[in-house]
């Protein structure tokens, strides 16, 4: 565990907190993509299959990971519940039109071609990594469709993007300090994921400096 990894995970938790705070305080899930939340649910439930095989108390790190995994799984399930049930009438269904089955199918094909080992577990793990890289796309499309973005929603996406950017710092750290090699799959997907946010980051920082709401062209 290094400072980049810890900061990244904290930002990930903060982003989830911001998302739930936005929905709860405004009693509305306007501007939030159900499709992105659904993709994250798939990502977490395929990535964290090892919850069934790993003893949480094996080490401090596995305990920490287990807590985080359960938190990510349960919070994304809860978010989906809120959007689909309690605040259903505020969900912006008309603009949330990204065709996610292409993302899911594309990730599945990539996972069958690129994986660490040819085992079901490794292929499912690779699938989750590919899917996570593109899971934000429906959310970014929704923002572009609607233009004006609520502050708390833009903070949410900013935290989520920063989380993966800090993971890159963590990987560079581990490469030199722990001589950790052969992580090409996670590295490549994490970099693609971070690059997807580049455009958003630009407009976010611009809006923060001007003290205005984020407006996407």
């Amino acid at each position: 565990m290094n400072i980049f990894r810890l900061a990244a995970d904290v930002l990930h938790v903060v982003s989830i907190f911001l998302l739930l705070l936005k929905i709860k305080t405004s009693h509305s899930c306007a501007g939030i993509s159900l499709k992105t939340q659904f993709l994250y649910m798939i990502v977490f439930s395929t990535r964290y299959l090892d919850l069934f095989f790993t003893k949480p108390w094996h080490s401090a790190l596995t305990f920490y990971n287990t807590i985080m995994k359960i938190l990510f799984l349960s919070s994304s399930a809860y978010t989906i519940y809120l959007i689909r049930n309690r605040y259903k009438h505020t969900y912006d269904k008309v603009h949330d039109t990204f065709r996610i089955h292409y993302l899911i199918a594309g990730s599945a094909v990539l996972a069958l071609v690129f994986h660490i080992r040819l085992t079901p577990f490794e292929i499912i793990w690779a699938f989750s990594v590919f899917l996570e890289a593109v899971a934000i796309m429906p959310q970014l499309l929704l923002l572009q469709e609607t233009g004006q973005v609520e502050n708390i929603t833009s903070h949410y996406i900013f935290c989520l993007g920063s989380y993966r950017a800090l993971y890159i710092c963590n990987w560079i750290w581990r490469y030199f300090m722990e001589h950790r090699r052969n992580q090409w799959l996670a590295w490549a997907c994490g970099t693609v994921q971070t690059l997807l946010y580049a455009d958003f980051f630009y407009y976010y920082i611009l809006s923060q400096r001007q003290g205005k709401k984020l407006r996407l062209p």
């Binding site: 090892d50 790190l61 596995t62 990971n65 985080m68 001589h179 090699r181």
Partner: peptide, 10 residues
């Protein structure tokens, strides 16, 4: 840890 594909990360 090398080659294990990042399973100790989230």
């Amino acid at each position: 840890a090398s080659g294990s594909g990042g399973k100790d990360e989230l």
